[in-house]
Each structure stands twice: as structure tokens, then as C-alpha cells.
């Protein structure tokens, strides 16, 4: 068994592109999924019954589906539904956004609900409107509980971007496996792929630990 690790270095440009795409997908998905998650959470908490039901249905649906299946389904259904020919990247982004929005909505809802009723009552007793109480009293406190979970979701998302490789999006996993197919250097490329994810993901995981320690809520 002869190993040739130089293939990794030779294809460093492609791997760099893959890494950049992975980051791009992660950032873009979060940029969409955070505001959308907030919107869905608010619908679920304060909307009228049909809006609440719709929001709840959406969240329950995507919490109970494997992401890889959503990716495939998006690939075949979205072009028909929207009438547009979406690139694999856009499709992947759509699938990831749908998925992460649902999780974020649950995170925001739980965060807001975790604030004691008494806090809202104290705010209203002062004469604040519900909106003011939310903005000035509930949200600042809820953020402390939400941030660690959001950080954890970010890291999961970073790993989940690897799943859009199945629809040929040129992120890190896809690129690595392409190079493997071209060079037949299976062990080297797959190990390099794992090592790259490790190098990128490990610090992120440690950062999440730090955030969780820092924002730990002492009741």
C-alpha cells in the first residue's frame, strides 16, 4: 500500500474553493434562518390560531425529516414549484434554510417562554404595552438563553452543509470526493477531508463550549 499525500497539496485550490463554499453556505443559511426563525417563533407565540397552526406545522414537519431527504426533495420539487431553474447551490441553500429556520424557531420560542411570567407582569404593571415588555424585558433576558443554543446550531449547520454534496454543490465534501474519484487516492483524500473538517470544526466546537460557559444562566 503506497500512499501519496502530495495529491492533497496539488489540489489545494479546489479544496480551498470547497472550504469557502462551505463557509458561504453556513453564513448565508444562518443569515436567512435567524430572522425567519424569529418570525416563525413570533407567529407561534402571538399569532392568531391559523397562523399559529401553520407555524407549528412547519416546525414539526422539518424537525421530523432527515435533512438529506429534504435536499433531494428540494432538488426535484423546487424547480417545479417556483418555475425557476435553481442552481444546486441555491437549492442546497433553500433546503438548509428551511431546515435550520425550523430549529431556530423552536430555540427562540423556548427562550422567550423560559422567562417567568412575573417579569412580564411587573413590566405591564408599570404601564408598558406587551410589545414594550417584550422588547425591554423579555428579549434581553431570552437572548442569554438563546445564544448558546444558536451557537450549537451553527456548528451543526457547518457539518450539515456536507449533505448538499449529494446534489453536486461544490462544497468541501463534494470537492474532496471529486478529487478522490479523479486521482484514485482514496485513503489520502478521504483522510484529508476528515482532517480539514476537523481543523475547521474543532475550534468552532470549543468556541461553543466557551459561549455556553459564559452565558450560563444562574437562577
Amino acid at each position: 500500500m503506497t500512499l501519496d499525500w502530495s495529491v492533497v497539496w496539488q489540489h489545494r485550490d479546489a479544496l480551498a474553493l470547497g472550504t469557502a463554499t462551505t463557509f458561504l453556505l453556513t453564513i448565508a443559511t444562518m443569515a436567512i434562518a435567524v430572522p425567519c426563525g424569529i418570525a416563525v417563533a413570533i407567529l407561534r407565540l402571538y399569532g392568531w390560531a391559523p397562523a399559529r397552526a401553520l407555524a407549528t406545522g412547519y416546525v414539526e414537519l422539518f424537525r421530523n425529516l432527515p435533512l438529506i431527504l429534504v435536499v433531494y426533495w428540494a432538488f426535484y420539487v423546487l424547480p417545479i414549484l417556483t418555475g425557476l431553474g435553481l442552481s444546486p447551490l441555491a437549492t442546497g441553500l433553500a433546503a438548509l434554510s428551511l431546515n435550520v429556520t425550523a430549529y431556530n424557531a423552536e430555540t427562540f420560542r423556548a427562550g422567550i417562554n423560559s422567562i417567568r411570567r412575573g417579569q412580564v407582569e411587573a413590566a405591564m404593571a408599570l404601564g408598558m404595552s406587551r410589545a414594550q415588555a417584550l422588547r425591554r424585558v423579555v428579549v434581553p433576558q431570552a437572548l442569554r438563553r438563546i445564544l448558546p443554543v444558536l451557537a450549537s446550531t451553527w456548528v451543526s449547520l457547518f457539518k450539515d452543509t456536507s449533505l448538499v454534496s449529494v446534489i453536486a454543490v461544490t462544497e468541501l465534501a463534494y470537492v474532496s470526493m471529486q478529487v478522490r474519484a479523479q486521482t484514485f487516492r482514496v485513503l489520502e483524500m478521504l483522510t484529508a477531508m476528515a482532517a480539514l473538517y476537523w481543523l475547521l470544526g474543532y475550534p468552532q466546537a470549543k468556541l461553543v463550549d466557551w459561549i455556553q460557559r459564559r452565558f450560563e444562566v444562574h437562577e
Binding site: 465534501a173 478522490r180 485513503l187 478521504l190 477531508m193 476528515a194
Partner: peptide, 23 residues
């Protein structure tokens, strides 16, 4: 434990199926 938090499932599965037999 921390490594498994960093590496995606897909990567672990692919490595196990294609690379482990080589090793």
C-alpha cells in the same frame, strides 16, 4: 468526543466504508 462534534456524519460514514478497508 470533541472530534466527533467537528466531523460530519457523512464524512465518517464515507471514510469507514472506503478508507477503513484499505487500512
Amino acid at each position: 468526543i470533541d472530534s466527533m462534534r467537528a466531523i460530519p456524519v457523512l464524512v465518517v460514514l464515507v471514510w469507514t466504508f472506503f478508507a477503513l478497508p484499505i487500512v
